[in-house]
C-alpha cells in the first residue's frame, strides 16, 4: 500500500514538473500575463486613481466586484460556521467556584442554577488558571496589535496591506485575549450579537459605497462620482473611495475571524475552551 502511494505521488509530481517546463520564464515580457492589462495598470494607475499602491487600486477599484464578492464569501463563511456549530442547549452539569473560599462546586441538577455574582463564579471542568506572565504580556501587547491593525487598514492605498490583512490582525488580537485569559473574558467584552452585526456591517459598507455611486449617477463602484460629497478632494477621490471600502472589508474580516474562532474552540457553546 505504501509502495502504491509512493508510485502515485512520484507520478503526479513528475507530471507537475513536466508541466512547469511549458511555463514562461521569470519576468518574461512576452508572457501572456504581462501582455494584456498589466501594462495599462502599471502606467495609468496613478493618473486614474491617485493611489500610490497599485495593487490596492487593482484589487478594489479595477476589480472591485471581485473583492466585494470575496467579502461576501467571508461573511457567508462566518454565517455558515455559526449555523453549523452554534449550540444553544445548556450543559447538563454546572461547575461553580465559591469565590471567598475557593471551593469548587459540582451541580448535577440541570435546573438548579446558582446566582453569579460576588459569591459564586463560573468554572469549567478543564479550567486551568491563566498564567500571570502571559496575561501581563498580552495585556501590554494587545493595544499595540490593534493600533498596528488600524495602521495597516488606513495605509492600504499607500503601502502593502489593506482591509483583509488589517482585519485579520485585529481579529487575532481578540483571539490572543481569549487565549491568554479565557474565552469568557472575550465573550463578555465582545458580544456575539455585536460580532454578527459587524460582519454584516462590513459587507454593507462595501456594497453601500457601490450603491451610493449608482445613486450619484455613475456605475456600480465608480468612486469618481462621489466627488460632490467630499468637496476639496476631487483629485484623489478614488483613493478615498478605496479607503472606505477597505474599512468595510476590515470590519467584516475582523468580526468573522473572531466568530469562527469562538464557535470552533468551544464547540458552539461559548462557555469554555482554550
Amino acid at each position: 500500500m505504501r509502495l502504491l502511494a509512493f508510485i502515485i505521488v512520484t507520478l503526479t509530481g513528475a507530471f507537475l514538473l513536466y508541466g512547469t517546463t511549458e511555463f514562461p520564464d521569470w519576468g518574461d515580457p512576452n508572457s501572456p500575463a504581462s501582455l494584456h492589462v498589466s501594462n495599462y495598470y502599471i502606467e495609468k494607475t496613478y493618473e486614474d486613481t491617485h493611489a500610490p499602491n497599485f495593487v490596492t487600486a487593482v484589487v478594489t477599484d479595477y476589480r472591485g466586484f471581485d473583492t466585494m464578492f470575496e467579502t461576501a464569501v467571508i461573511f457567508t463563511a462566518g454565517i455558515g460556521c455559526f449555523l453549523l456549530l452554534r449550540d444553544f442547549r445548556g450543559k447538563k452539569e454546572h461547575y461553580y467556584q465559591h469565590i471567598p473560599s475557593g471551593v469548587i462546586l459540582h451541580v448535577k441538577d440541570e435546573k438548579k442554577l446558582l446566582p453569579i455574582g460576588k459569591e459564586f463564579g463560573y468554572m469549567d471542568k478543564e479550567w486551568v488558571p491563566p498564567d500571570l506572565i502571559n496575561k501581563t504580556v498580552c495585556r501590554i501587547l494587545i493595544p499595540f496589535i490593534q493600533i498596528y491593525a488600524l495602521y495597516v487598514v488606513a495605509h492600504g492605498d499607500y503601502s502593502p496591506g489593506g482591509g483583509f490583512q488589517g482585519g485579520v490582525i485585529f481579529g487575532s488580537s481578540l483571539i490572543l485575549l481569549a487565549i491568554s485569559y479565557d474565552l469568557k473574558t472575550l465573550v463578555e467584552r465582545v458580544k456575539e450579537k455585536l460580532l454578527g452585526i459587524f460582519a454584516a456591517l462590513g459587507v454593507l459598507i462595501y456594497a453601500g459605497t457601490g450603491a451610493l455611486c449608482l445613486l450619484m449617477g455613475g456605475n456600480f463602484l465608480d468612486y469618481g462620482k462621489l466627488a460632490p460629497l467630499i468637496p476639496g478632494h476631487s483629485g484623489h477621490i478614488r483613493a478615498l473611495g478605496m479607503l472606505v471600502v477597505e474599512i468595510g472589508v476590515g470590519i467584516a474580516v475582523m468580526a468573522v475571524m473572531t466568530l469562527i474562532y469562538i464557535n470552533i474552540v468551544s464547540e458552539g457553546r461559548h462557555d469554555e475552551g482554550l
Partner: peptide, 20 residues
C-alpha cells in the same frame, strides 16, 4: 522591542504547556 517582549513569553508558554 516587540520581539524581545514576545519571544521569551512564547517560549515560556510552550514550556508551560509541556509541563501541564
Amino acid at each position: 522591542f516587540f520581539v524581545s517582549l514576545a519571544s521569551p513569553t512564547a517560549t515560556h508558554t510552550i514550556v508551560d504547556a509541556g509541563m501541564r
